[in-house]
Structures are given as structure tokens and as C-alpha cells.
Design a protein around this nucleic acid. Structure first.
Length: 261
DNA sequence: ATGGCTATCATTGATAGA
């Protein structure tokens, strides 16, 4: 069954609601994964999505983080937390994860921690979160069901994913340890969907609000779809839609998308 | 001119983002 899936770090669903609804109107998107909704579940604007025939599911919290999925197809929730494998730290109250099934496809919507400053407790949290994601992804991957990881990964995997990597050498998004963990996740058997079609293109999904980064195209590609082999077989097209970043009151991220047959 | 935006929450400033 053909399906069009997008991922968009909205940087507050309240501020970005017009942008998101406008984008959905212009693009025939069946499923949109959203990150940084920055609102508690009681305040999520469900009705605006329902009026457009989208089912919605959200995992939010006050002020920060928060993920959500809107889908024209039925959403079956599997979990909203990554399992805790580290027995010493058995608590995580940050809303960064949703695992759902839509049309028999496993879909993770994730907002991976930023991790700055590194080193420090925030970086430790990032790496631990990645370890949890790797373990959980292995479990699901080993079930031999189709799997899509989509979201804001907060990792610059290679220098071609950045306008000027010399400025990011000591950043939590580019440290060797960070990239090794993303590589370990990918090596489970996933593929960066964008790089299937664009082997060496320098296209970005985030531009800082500061310093005229958008105008200078000083961007980084940190929003990704990592897909399992059966999804690769059905991949029809993939892309990054830069248009919303240049519009009024934009998010600092822009939507990425995949089309499956 | 080497840079200084945006959102949230609580109160005109701190915190977080990347």
C-alpha cells in the first residue's frame, strides 16, 4: 500500500500549528512525525488534526521535548518509552519517544537528546539514550517486521551533513563517540533513506535562528529516516522540503519525507 | 562590527535548543 511519511521538528506545536497544517494541505502526507511539541498532552491541538482526517497520538511534557504522530491510517500504540536497561538509573521522565504500528509497519518517532555541553551529564544522558535506542531497535529488528526510525537524531554523521565541519569538532552532535553510536544503530541493518538517492548531496534539515544561518545556508542534516531492508525495497522517493524554513515564523528545522509503494 | 534568535515559564530574566 502506498504511503507518504514525513518528519518535522516543529519547535512548539502551539507556535507552529499554522505552518504544520499549511504544509499538510500542500503535501499529500499520510503520516507526520513531530518533535519538540513542547506541550503537555492536555493542550495538544488534536481537533485541528482531526478536522483534517488525521488520527493523532502524542507524548508530551511541559516546556520541553514532546513527540507526536498524526496519521490518516489507524495508529496502534506499542510504547511511549524506551526500556531502561541500565539498572543503576531506572528513571527517564523526558518525552522523546513513540513506537507505533501503522499499516503493519513499525514506526519510531524520536527526539534524540542534544547532549551539549560535552563532556557532562547531558552528554552522558545522550549516550545512554542512544544505547537504549540501539538495544530496543535490535529487539524490534529481530522480529523481521518492517521498521522505520524517523525524527530528530541530533547527530551529524558525516562532514557532508554539515556546511563547515570545522566549527563542530567538539560539539555533542559530531563527537566521535556520538557518531560511533549512530553507526552502531545503523549497522543493525538500517539505511539512511536520504543517502540512497543522494550519495553526496549537501542538503540540510536544520539552520540556526542566529547569525543569518538560513540566508548563508549554514545548515546541518540531523533529521533522518533510518529504514529496514523491506522498506528500502518499497522506497519510491525521498527528500527534504526546505520551503517551510523560509516562510513566516518558521521552525529552525524543516520537514523530511519518504514515499513508499 | 567577531555574534546576539526563538520559545517557554515566570516576571524582565533564566533555561534550553544545536
Amino acid at each position: 500500500m502506498p504511503i507518504k511519511i514525513a518528519s518535522f521538528n516543529v519547535n512548539s506545536i502551539k507556535m507552529r500549528l499554522p505552518n504544520v497544517l499549511n504544509w499538510l494541505d500542500k503535501n499529500n502526507t499520510d503520516v507526520i512525525l513531530m518533535q519538540e511539541t513542547k506541550t503537555i498532552d492536555d493542550n495538544f491541538p488534536s481537533l485541528d488534526f482531526k478536522q483534517k482526517q488525521y488520527n493523532v497520538i502524542f507524548n508530551g511534557q511541559k516546556s520541553y521535548n514532546g513527540v507526536a504522530i498524526a496519521s490518516k491510517f489507524e495508529i496502534n500504540e506499542i510504547t511511549r518509552t524506551l526500556p531502561l536497561y541500565d539498572e543503576e538509573k531506572n528513571e527517564d521522565n523526558q518525552a522523546r519517544f513513540l513506537h507505533v504500528k501503522i499499516n503493519e509497519i513499525n514506526i519510531f518517532c524520536l527526539y534524540l537528546p542534544n547532549g551539549n555541553p560535552a563532556p557532562g551529564p547531558k552528554y552522558d544522558y545522550k549516550i545512554n539514550w542512544m544505547r537504549r535506542l540501539i538495544k530496543y531497535t535490535k529487539e524490534i529488528y529481530d522480529s523481521n517486521e518492517p521498521l522505520i526510525l524517523g525524527g530528530d537524531f541530533n547527530v551529524i554523521q558525516e562532514s557532508i551533513d554539515c556546511y563547515d565541519i570545522s566549527e563542530w569538532q567538539n560539539d555533542a552532535l559530531y563527537l566521535e563517540k556520538t557518531r560511533r553510536h549512530l553507526r552502531e544503530l545503523i549497522n543493525i541493518g538500517l539505511v539512511d533513506a536520504y543517502r540512497i538517492k543522494y550519495k553526496s548531496a549537501k542538503e540540510y534539515s536544520f539552520w540556526d535562528y542566529q547569525s543569518g544561518a538560513w540566508q548563508k545556508d549554514n545548515g546541518i542534516r540531523i533529521d533522518l529516516f533510518l529504514i529496514s531492508p523491506e522498506i528500502v525495497d518499497n522506497l519510491v522517493d525521498v527528500g527534504i522540503d526546505k520551503t517551510p524554513r523560509g516562510e513566516e515564523k518558521p521552525s529552525d528545522h524543516t520537514p523530511i519525507w519518504i514515499h513508499l509503494e
